[in-house]
Deep mutational scan, measured.
Amino acid sequence: MTEYKLVVVGAGGVGKSALTIQLIQNHFVDEYDPTIEDSYRKQVVIDGETCLLDILDTAGQEEYSAMRDQYMRTGEGFLCVFAINNTKSFEDIHHYREQIKRVKDSEDVPMVLVGNKCDLPSRTVDTKQAQDLARSYGIPFIETSAKTRQGVDDAFYTLVREIRKHKEKMSKDGKKKKKKSKTKCVIM
């Protein structure tokens, strides 16, 4: 069974824990209790493949930012979460993405942009803004509501699919490099 290491990042209060708990335990946590770091595991079937999701729910508070490099190193894919009623959390996505790329030393890291709290009427981040940002990053965008469960499975499952595509691409690139290195030079 394939294991996928997913990391949920975003500013404090955007609903990272609520999304994760909704996926794992099928219930909505409405009281806000700032996370330092929590880890969850769940076995699911995605596109006919049974897999184990190892999900790291991270601290959004700035005082825990020193811990970010460590979990970013171990993560295979990242859910970059903002709240649709919090423009600052949307603007912060850029910083999370840049930090992930720096730590992973790669421009090509599996990510999904997630606009959470889409059940709320007080939207300050337009869907088109988020779609445009995701398009500019070359990553999928999904709106979710941890409260109603809308888009929750889709967000995590899409990230797994992005990781699969990335692994497939990397193995193809690896095979191309191996083929090239088999060419021999004969000096007579």
Rank of each mutant, 00 (worst) to 15 (best):
T2D: 10
L6I: 10
V8L: 07
G12E: 09
G12W: 02
V14D: 04
G15L: 00
A18R: 06
A18F: 04
L19Q: 10
T20K: 12
T20S: 12
T20Q: 09
Q22R: 08
L23S: 14
L23D: 14
L23H: 14
Q25V: 01
H27Q: 11
H27W: 05
V29Y: 07
D33P: 10
T35R: 06
I36V: 10
D38C: 11
Y40T: 13
R41G: 10
Q43L: 04
V44E: 10
V45R: 08
V45S: 11
I46Q: 01
E49G: 05
E49F: 03
E49V: 06
C51D: 06
C51W: 10
L52N: 13
I55F: 11
L56G: 13
D57L: 11
A59S: 13
A59E: 09
G60T: 07
E62I: 08
E62G: 12
Q70G: 06
G75S: 11
F78P: 00
F78M: 01
L79M: 07
V81W: 00
A83N: 15
A83D: 15
I84Q: 15
I84M: 15
I84H: 15
N85S: 15
N86G: 11
T87D: 12
S89W: 03
S89M: 07
S89Y: 01
F90L: 14
I93Y: 02
H95T: 02
Y96N: 08
Y96T: 04
Y96F: 15
Y96V: 12
E98M: 01
E98A: 05
E98K: 10
Q99R: 06
K101N: 07
R102L: 05
D105E: 13
S106Y: 10
S106R: 05
E107F: 13
V109M: 04
V109N: 00
M111S: 00
M111G: 01
V112P: 00
L113W: 04
L113F: 12
L113Y: 03
V114G: 01
D119I: 00
L120V: 07
S122M: 06
T124S: 12
T124V: 10
Q131P: 02
D132E: 15
L133E: 06
R135T: 10
R135Q: 12
P140I: 09
I142W: 01
I142S: 01
S145M: 03
S145W: 09
S145A: 02
R149Y: 08
R149T: 05
Q150A: 08
G151N: 10
V152C: 10
V152P: 03
D154T: 12
Y157K: 14
Y157L: 12
T158M: 07
L159K: 00
E162M: 12
I163G: 01
K167R: 13
K167N: 11
E168F: 11
M170K: 11
M170V: 07
K172H: 14
D173I: 03
D173V: 06
G174F: 01
K175H: 06
K176V: 01
K177S: 12
K178E: 15
K182A: 15
T183M: 04
T183E: 15
K184D: 15
C185A: 15
I187C: 14
M188G: 15
